[in-house]
């Protein structure tokens, strides 16, 4: 079977949330001498990206995303075992995320955390009502690539600005990218406080993250 067909089948197994099928496709594609890296990036990962888009449209639900993510992890494990160490993919990035101090809104941030993990990021979720110093401390501890802060209210939004200042003070700002989210955040707000980007929806955030970390 040609590569294009294998890629389609891989993506479809993720969309079907079918772990058994994903494993089978991974194994058989290797037997058919397909490139494991291409199978991961353009097959299984393409399927998970499509799942994220469908979630954004209300056509796929959170439990389905988790099942699809497990299916992808199972397939990727098989494909990675076939790769020499130097071709194995590193983590996409390490992310520290939380809702800023004074703000107890957790649901949107929780969904974002799930989506980031589904897409292969290592995520350290600090929860909600998180003091600024905890973002900084955790970022140093795990050597974070990105710090994400969520704010749902105009009254707590200022925490995102304070985070930028705290990162500069700690000498960390040049080493990490920052993203802001939440109902009241906007592109202009991100620019105004010096954040690297604003994630408007889960799909938008994943897309911008991929570009900024590349």
């Amino acid at each position: 079977m040609e590569m294009k067909k294998w890629l389609e089948k891989a993506a479809q197994s993720i969309l079907d949330q079918d772990e058994e099928s994903a494993r089978e496709i991974a194994k058989k594609s290797l037997e058919d001498d397909m490139d494991p890296v291409e199978m991961i990036n353009d097959g299984f990962a393409a399927g998970i990206r499509k799942m994220g888009d469908l979630f954004d449209r209300g056509e796929v639900f959170l439990p389905g995303l988790i099942i699809a993510s497990d299916a992808m992890a199972a397939a990727v494990k098989i494909l990675e075992e076939a790769l020499p160490q130097d071709r194995r993919q590193e983590k996409l990035g390490i992310i520290v995320i939380g809702t800023v101090e004074g703000d107890i809104h957790d649901i949107g941030k929780g969904i974002m955390v799930t989506l980031l993990r589904v897409h292969g990021y290592e995520v350290h979720d600090l929860g909600r009502d998180v003091p600024i110093e905890e973002f900084v401390k955790k970022a140093q501890e795990v050597n974070a690539d990105v710090i994400g802060s969520s704010a749902m209210m105009t009254t707590t939004q200022i925490g995102q600005k304070k985070l930028e200042e705290a990162l500069k003070k700690a000498g960390l700002r040049a080493k990490v990218k920052t993203m802001v989210g939440g109902a009241v955040a906007t592109d202009h707000w991100a620019k105004r406080i010096g954040a690297d980007f604003f994630g408007e929806t889960p799909a938008d955030t994943i897309d911008k993250l991929r570009r900024i970390l590349n």
């Binding site: 209300g58 639900f61 959170l62 389905g64």
Partner: peptide, 9 residues
């Protein structure tokens, strides 16, 4: 605008 499927069923 749409009902988020957190439970889904």
């Amino acid at each position: 605008e749409f009902i988020l499927g957190l439970h889904g069923e």
